[in-house]
Each structure stands twice: as C-alpha cells, then as structure tokens.
Amino acid sequence: MDKLRKTYNIEIKWRAYPLQPDVPEQGLPIARLLEEKGLLVTPEQVTANLKATAQSFGLPFGEGKMIYNSRLAQEIGLWAQACGRAHQFHDAAFKAYFVDDSNLADKTVLLDLVASAGLDGAQAKKIIDSRSYADAVDRDWEKARELELVAAPTFLMKGQRLVGAKPYPVLEKMVAEVVGEVQACL
C-alpha cells in the first residue's frame, strides 16, 4: 500500500551564496574557469553531469558554455524575497541562466526577469542602481563562510545538512528526521 505522508509547513528562505564571485560581469567560458582552477574535467563532462542531474528532476538545461557572475542577481533575489516573489524570480533566473545561458550580471536581463516574476521594473532599476541589497548579500556570504557551505543548494535544518540537488524523498526523509517523526507504512 501507499506510504502515509505527513504534511509539513516549512518556510523556505533564499540566501545568497558566493557562486564563483571572482568571475567578471561579462562572464568566462567554463573551459577557462576549469583551467584556472586546475580541475581535470572537461566542460563537456561538467555540462553532461549537470544535464543528467537536471533531467532526473524533470528540469530543462541548456548547453552552459559560459559562467557568469551572479552577485547582482542575488541582490535582486533578496529584494524579490522581501516582496514575496522569491520563488517566481528564482525560477525565472534558473531558466535564464541554466537553459538560455543568459548573463545574470546584465541589468537588462535582470529587469526582464523581474518583469517575468511580476515585480515592479522601475523599483528594480532603483534597487540595481543603488545596490541597496549589497549589504544583505554580504551578510549572507559571510554566513555561508561561517557555516562552511561548499555548494548550492544546501539545506540546513536544526543542525542537519543536505548538500546538492537531491531527489524529493531524500529531502522528505531529512524533514521527517528533524521533526522526530517516522514515516509509517500500511
């Protein structure tokens, strides 16, 4: 018989994470980044692994030949969260970056994402121009260093940590363990 499922009310809070913060705004070819880091993996292997992971979750994934600086997108993401539109913005940013290979450091790209997430473009332009969420991103990056985070996504719950994209049942098991409940089977 089917497993009984417990419903959990979990608040998800998006946090900024320093994803390749030294990459210039115009981006870098992934091959160059791998070479600079001395990694013995080809861009094709990286893309194939990411595509396989995305496919296992039913997510689209493009060719991913470039890596871009996501700092400004993280600032807008925190603003989107303050506006109650974090999920919409992050979904749009995911598609733009991982499917369309768009540069998330480009202000025009960000303003398009803001519009697609149902946010006010004029307000977003002010946020971008003033960099009013820069300090919030700095605080998140510092917290990431304190917690010794090494990858995104990372889920933290009451001292437990789940690193990387995982199938839903793995996250569900973590939640059940954290709240001290055991899944019952009929």
Score class of each variant (00 low, 15 high):
5 R>H: 07
10 I>K: 00
14 W>Q: 10
15 R>M: 07
16 A>E: 08
17 Y>K: 01
18 P>C: 03
19 L>Q: 02
20 Q>Y: 15
20 Q>F: 15
20 Q>M: 13
21 P>H: 08
22 D>I: 02
27 G>C: 05
27 G>K: 02
29 P>N: 05
31 A>T: 13
32 R>S: 10
36 E>K: 11
38 G>P: 09
40 L>Y: 09
43 P>L: 11
43 P>W: 13
44 E>K: 11
45 Q>M: 11
49 N>Y: 08
49 N>R: 14
55 Q>G: 11
55 Q>S: 15
59 L>N: 03
59 L>Y: 15
59 L>D: 01
60 P>N: 11
62 G>M: 07
62 G>N: 04
65 K>I: 13
67 I>A: 05
70 S>E: 08
72 L>P: 01
76 I>L: 15
78 L>Y: 00
78 L>I: 05
79 W>R: 00
79 W>C: 01
81 Q>E: 15
86 A>M: 08
87 H>C: 13
88 Q>M: 04
89 F>G: 07
91 D>I: 07
93 A>N: 04
93 A>C: 04
94 F>D: 13
95 K>E: 13
95 K>C: 01
98 F>C: 08
99 V>M: 11
100 D>L: 12
100 D>Q: 14
102 S>V: 03
103 N>I: 00
104 L>G: 09
105 A>N: 07
107 K>W: 00
110 L>R: 07
110 L>F: 05
111 L>A: 05
112 D>G: 12
113 L>K: 02
113 L>P: 02
115 A>Y: 00
118 G>P: 06
120 D>N: 15
122 A>V: 15
123 Q>V: 14
124 A>G: 10
124 A>M: 07
125 K>S: 08
129 D>C: 07
131 R>A: 12
134 A>K: 14
136 A>T: 10
137 V>P: 07
138 D>F: 06
139 R>K: 12
140 D>C: 03
141 W>C: 09
142 E>P: 00
142 E>M: 10
144 A>Q: 00
144 A>K: 03
144 A>N: 02
146 E>M: 08
148 E>C: 09
149 L>N: 00
150 V>W: 01
151 A>D: 06
155 F>I: 15
156 L>E: 12
158 K>T: 09
160 Q>F: 10
161 R>H: 05
162 L>I: 10
163 V>C: 06
163 V>A: 14
163 V>H: 05
164 G>Q: 05
164 G>K: 05
165 A>T: 09
168 Y>K: 02
172 E>S: 01
175 V>M: 12
175 V>W: 04
183 Q>N: 02
185 C>K: 11
186 L>S: 13
